[in-house]
């Protein structure tokens, strides 16, 4: 059990984004908040070699920000990220090809006029992993490996469907021979039948190549399916982390419980489904509640929760939970 990738007390702040709504509000005389957003606060975690660590939480809780810091493409404001003991990023630049990423919309960053074969081989050639002469074969091999016709190397990005795009993105990332793959919502925009195809491909390649993976998704069922361990985030912090089987079967943090209870279940026996929603709404990350950030919505909150932030602390079975009462 050795950690290959670790975050040590990482925090990330962003300067405020001014949206259209803010401009309209400002024009109408409303006061617009210009404080910095703290997207991730003091997160420490370690990803073990060969495992898939799932990262779940609702939108805005900081999953992508944490993922980008771990991938070495976004510098932390505080704390550090270590890949085998060395930072994957120096002076604002990614210094390693050992970590690759797959995003929800993988073609956003592709040149629409570049053929897919070239897009796949570009990185490996420029990093000297293969010669330019071997590039076409590399692209064809990877296309076949992800279940696409090698002849698709000649196609342009717009000629691919959503599921095919994710296959290409996986091929493009893996052609760099990474040890760590950071996947951020890789199946979020896919239909279930296509999602199943991509998840199967992911599981197969993960095993065959012995990859280490951080798998980010808002979909709890997807994360359960692919992950060995899972981390649950709320308002920029990890509130629970442990073996996926344990966390899903016996969630300890009231937020994890509420989240799991909110997921609609397939009701096969026709029994009436009772929803048990978490009450209230996510507070603004601009002004997180004092003490435990979840206390205003928590059914178990007491005075200590309002006053003191619970530390992420280990339980007998190895799960870490940040709760005064769990």
């Amino acid at each position: 059990m050795t950690a290959i990738l670790a975050a040590e007390g990482v925090t990330r702040r962003f300067a405020p984004r001014v949206t259209l709504g803010d401009r309209i509000a400002a024009a109408l005389g409303a006061r617009v908040d210009r404080r910095a957003v703290q997207a991730v606060t003091d997160v420490s975690l370690a990803v073990t070699r060969g495992e898939t660590l799932g990262l779940v939480g609702e939108s805005g809780c900081g999953k992508s920000t944490l993922g980008r810091m771990l991938a070495g493409i976004l510098p932390p404001s505080e704390g550090r990220v270590l890949l085998d003991g060395a930072p994957p990023m120096r002076a604002g630049h990614k210094t390693t090809t050992r970590i690759q990423t797959v995003f929800q919309d993988p073609f956003a960053s592709l040149n629409p006029r570049q053929r897919i074969g070239e897009a796949i081989a570009e990185g490996p050639v420029s990093h000297g992993l293969v010669t330019r002469a071997a590039a076409p074969k590399l692209a064809a091999d990877w296309l076949a490996r992800v279940g696409l016709d090698p002849a698709y190397a000649q196609r342009f990005p717009h000629q691919f469907s959503g599921g095919q795009r994710q296959r290409v993105a996986i091929a493009r990332a893996l052609a760099m021979q990474p040890e760590v793959l950071v996947c951020d919502e890789p199946v979020a925009s896919l239909d279930v039948s296509i999602q199943a195809q991509v998840l199967n491909l992911f599981l197969e390649l993960h095993r065959a190549l012995g990859l280490t993976c951080l798998f980010i998704s808002h979909d709890l069922a997807v994360v359960r399916h692919v992950s060995d361990r899972v981390a649950v985030m709320y308002l920029g912090r990890i509130v629970e982390i442990g073996e996926a089987a344990t966390v899903y079967a016996a969630p300890r943090h009231p937020y994890t419980r509420g989240l799991l209870a909110s997921v609609p279940k397939l009701s096969l026996d026709g029994a009436a489904v009772e929803f048990q929603p978490i009450r209230g709404e996510l507070p603004s990350p601009l002004s997180p509640p004092a003490g435990c950030a979840f206390h205003p919505r928590c059914p178990a909150a007491t005075d200590v929760c309002r006053a003191q932030r619970p530390a992420l602390s280990p339980r007998a079975d190895g799960t870490l939970v940040a709760c005064h009462h769990a």
């Binding site: 279930v192 039948s193 998840l199 069922a221 399916h225």
Partner: peptide, 18 residues
Amino acid sequence: SLPAMGRPGEMLAQIPGS
């Protein structure tokens, strides 16, 4: 195809094609 119907870590039944 639903992950909830499969066993964690095992291949999901998939519908081929699109």
